[in-house]
């Protein structure tokens, strides 16, 4: 008996609506984040992450209402990422009912923001999202760097050193996305996950590339992840969270059933 590895479905939300078409037959409105969150909660999700991809500044207030509604009906931890740029953004999300916020680009441009936010609200609610991409050539020792703008802009910052620095600055958790794998359905980047997990003292959430249940299990067994995050395999109802947990349990992974 010990701590369970977590499965975290991620919802991309644009102006208050879930995108990437969920196709649950028994859900009335697949674009309604509240309905989708409730479904994942019923299936046994250990946490839910909302990624606000709203491009316009004006549209961003909608995520606050989404979080408020979900938090009054779903009683598991909720994380909100996307557009968290200042302390006021963190406060607004926590007050709406989020338990954690994920800080991404803003951490790269202003690392002190992570320190400020964790000192103000506690490390337990500060997740730093690290988007990493391999920069080493074939045959060279593996090396990954931080990229911003959806993986388009290199920063020259080493992903492992950056993750360690973010923990020093107060990150309570690292959400690591492999930009090489994101959207490919080829599985997590296991060497990257393993390297970061061993380098930091805080829990690691692996993200990017999940296409089947074995990928989720491998993230824990081979990638050293404490939690695994996936979007599309759950969105398109290819697998339920419950199926994912049963599969992981069969592989000897401790999960909450």
């Amino acid at each position: 008996m010990s701590l369970a590895k977590r499965i975290i479905p991620c919802l991309d939300v644009d102006q208050g609506r879930v995108v990437k078409g969920v196709q649950f037959v028994d859900i009335r409105d697949a674009g309604d984040p509240v309905e989708v969150a409730r479904r994942y909660d019923d299936e046994g999700a250990d946490e839910i992450t909302f990624l606000d991809i709203t491009a316009s500044h004006e549209g961003r207030d909608t995520i606050v209402h989404v979080v408020e509604q979900v938090a009054s009906q779903v009683f598991i931890p909720l994380t909100v990422g996307g557009g968290i740029r200042e302390v006021a953004d963190v406060r607004r999300m926590l007050n709406a009912g989020a338990d954690k916020v994920a800080i991404n680009t803003a951490a790269v441009f202003n690392p002190e923001f992570v320190r400020e936010a964790s000192e103000r609200f506690g490390s337990q609610c500060i997740v730093v999202a690290v988007d990493a991409k391999r920069v080493s050539a074939e045959g060279e020792p593996l090396r990954w760097e931080i990229f911003t703008h959806g993986g388009r802009k290199p920063t020259g910052i080493d992903a492992i050193e950056w993750s360690q620095k973010m923990v020093e600055y107060g990150a309570g958790e690292i959400l690591l996305t492999s930009m090489d794998r994101d959207g490919t359905k080829q599985g997590f980047n296991l060497p990257l996950n393993k390297a970061v997990s061993e380098a930091v003292s805080v829990p690691l959430i692996a993200s990017g590339g999940v296409g089947n249940l074995q990928h989720l299990a491998d993230g824990v067994l081979k990638g050293g992840a404490d939690a695994v995050l996936a979007a599309s395999i759950f969105h398109f109802a290819e697998y339920t969270v419950g199926e994912a947990k049963a599969f992981m349990a069969e592989q000897g992974i401790e999960v909450r059933l």
Binding site: D46, G172, D226
Partner: peptide
């Protein structure tokens, strides 16, 4: 260090997640 793990695995801090 995880006393229950044969390899003496290091446990992450904070203790975060669902435990019995």
């Amino acid at each position: 260090i995880d006393a229950d793990d044969a390899n003496g695995e290091r446990l992450k801090i904070p203790h975060m997640g669902w435990n019995q």
